[in-house]
Design a protein around this nucleic acid. Sequence first.
DNA 1: CGTGTGCCCTGACAGC
DNA 2: TGCTGTCAGGGCACAC
Length: 269
Amino acid sequence: MPELPEVETTVRGLAPFLEGQRLTAVTTFRPDLRRAFPADLAQRLTGATVTTLSRRAKYGVISTDRDDHMIFHLGMSGRWRTEGGAAGKHDHLLIEAAGHRLFLHDPRRFGSVDLVRGDPLTLFPAFVTLGPEPLSDDFDAGYLAKALAGRRAPIKAMLLDQTVVAGLGNIYVCEALNMARIAPTKAAADVSKAKLAVLVPAIKDVLAAAIAAGGSTLRDFLSPDGDLGYFAKDWRVYGREGEACQCGGTIVRIVQSGRSTFACPKCQR
DNA sequence: CGTGTGCCCTGACAGC
DNA sequence: TGCTGTCAGGGCACAC
């Protein structure tokens, strides 16, 4: 997936197709992503009118006038495609509205689709434990210092923890830590208040820039309009093992919690 | 409770 | 060309 900016871009891209529209048909093809789709998904959505599209963390929310909220997660490889035509391999769900056909496409099937009646912020289990949105005013250096107090896990792992801050993924954490010159391996509680005061705006900046760029992409991300790729990808460190950091150091790749971390050992301390 | 590990699934790519 | 190994934006179940 899609980290926060890609989901935000997806939601913004889907909105013109769906907001205010009646869902004329909802069809499931292979209704087993990470979890099985709700059995009554198609029945509850068909005929409903979409009121709003929104995002929480890396989840997109499609709300209807029946107070049903379809919550989708794109996992590692999910996307919505709007090219129309027939369902193809890895298309799991089809939503039709105002003559448009929207396919939820997810080859690796790490994504999910849930349906909640009533306020998802309090009723959807995954939402209840989420930390603040990183772009909100609730997410500041004071909050982060409190959240990280006493935590001995690496700062990188803490920033990927969705209960600490909601929506960051591997790429943007690597980027923000480089911008703030913090070693990803440093114990979270040992990152100084001064460093956190640099890190928080770095996180906001890298996310805002990616959203502004239309969501960054790797090879299998498509915009909701079906256009191939985006721009970005001009990461400072991500995917740049062996290349020069802006400080002149050499970027290295290490493995933390089984996932790649890219960092510059010269300036990140 | 906090922390670290491994796995879910499929496809792309590098190297032989 | 075809095989094998490695890697991929996430999240969760476990074990300690």
